[in-house]
């Protein structure tokens, strides 16, 4: 490393720390303060250490709503991503392996799904029609519908790297179509699946807009909705508000630490080919 690279690095680190890290430090510091201190919104160190206090208070707020929100968000994220992975892999596999005139239509639908924003009110109308409005099931299926195009595209590209000989060997070994898919193809798609799970879990967990439309009401709140609602409730209690932000920030941070490589792969693969 040259001296120049070292100096640039030090300078960049200093600037990046101010621009990119300061807001996070601010979140953490404010979350540890008492409510009087926090309302000043300044950057001083807390006079007293209230991290645990604030944590308990946020949990207890509105009759343990945050816990319910975490439960709901977890259910939605896990189910939606699982269905997205399975349906996406099946469509991507078929799209790559079997050429037919339907393929063009499916590709067109994938592009439409990636670009076009959902028509929200008509979607509410459809959800009401099939009895899924304001339900967790409905929210799960909505997330699947919105995330599926990306999943299909990603799997199609990965299936292309698996030689078709493997399918044929399995067919000769007596595998039925579902067995070829589940015993041979799906295990080989594991890298794509891990990336997809990580990237889409974060996206679904962080989604605010769609739960806002399709999941109104107290019993089905998600983490992002709770945070948004706390914003007005805790106007005078910034310490609790920021404790909430801190709690919302931690899950992606943990995922990021463990799956950095997969996230980077997923974000750029989807992007460069999209």
């Amino acid at each position: 490393m040259t001296r120049r690279q070292l100096m640039t690095g030090l300078l960049a680190t200093a600037i990046a720390s101010i621009i990119f890290l300061l807001p996070f430090i601010f979140i953490f510091v404010t979350a540890t303060k008492s409510s009087q201190e926090a309302s000043l919104l300044n950057f001083s160190l807390p006079g007293g250490w209230h991290l645990w206090d604030n944590f308990i208070k946020v949990l207890q707020a509105r009759n343990y709503m945050l816990l319910l929100a975490y439960l709901n968000s977890t259910i939605i994220t896990v189910c939606a991503v699982a269905i997205m992975v399975l349906c996406g892999a099946m469509i991507g596999y078929l799209l790559q392996r079997r050429s037919s005139r339907w393929n063009k239509i499916i590709y067109a639908m994938v592009m439409v799904g990636l670009i076009v924003p959902p028509a929200v009110v008509p979607t509410i109308w459809v959800l009401q029609g099939i009895g899924l409005f304001k339900t967790i099931h409905g929210m799960i299926l909505i997330q699947v519908a919105y995330g599926l195009p990306f999943s299909v595209l990603m799997y199609r590209n990965f299936v292309a790297a698996i030689p078709q000989d493997l399918d044929e060997a399995a067919i000769i070994d007596g595998a039925k179509p579902l067995q070829v898919f589940f015993k041979v193809i799906l295990p080989l798609l594991k890298p794509a699946t891990v990336t997809l799970i990580v990237v889409k879990s974060i996206a679904v967990f962080n989604d605010f807009t769609h739960p806002l439309y399709y999941l109104p009401g107290r019993e089905n709140v998600t983490v992002q909705l709770t945070l948004y609602n706390f914003q007005s409730q805790f106007e005078t209690q910034y310490n609790l508000l920021f404790m909430n932000i801190l709690l919302v920030t931690i899950p992606p941070l943990i995922v990021f630490i463990f799956f950095n490589r997969q996230i980077v792969a997923g974000m750029t693969a989807g992007a460069v080919k999209g």
Binding site: P163, D165, L166, E168, A169, A170, I171, I172, D173, G174, A175, V184, P187, L188, K190
Partner: peptide
Amino acid sequence: AEPSARGIAMVFQSYALYPH
């Protein structure tokens, strides 16, 4: 008949071993 019901076995050029 289905490939698996023909009483045949096949060795592929690429061997087609299941990598996993």
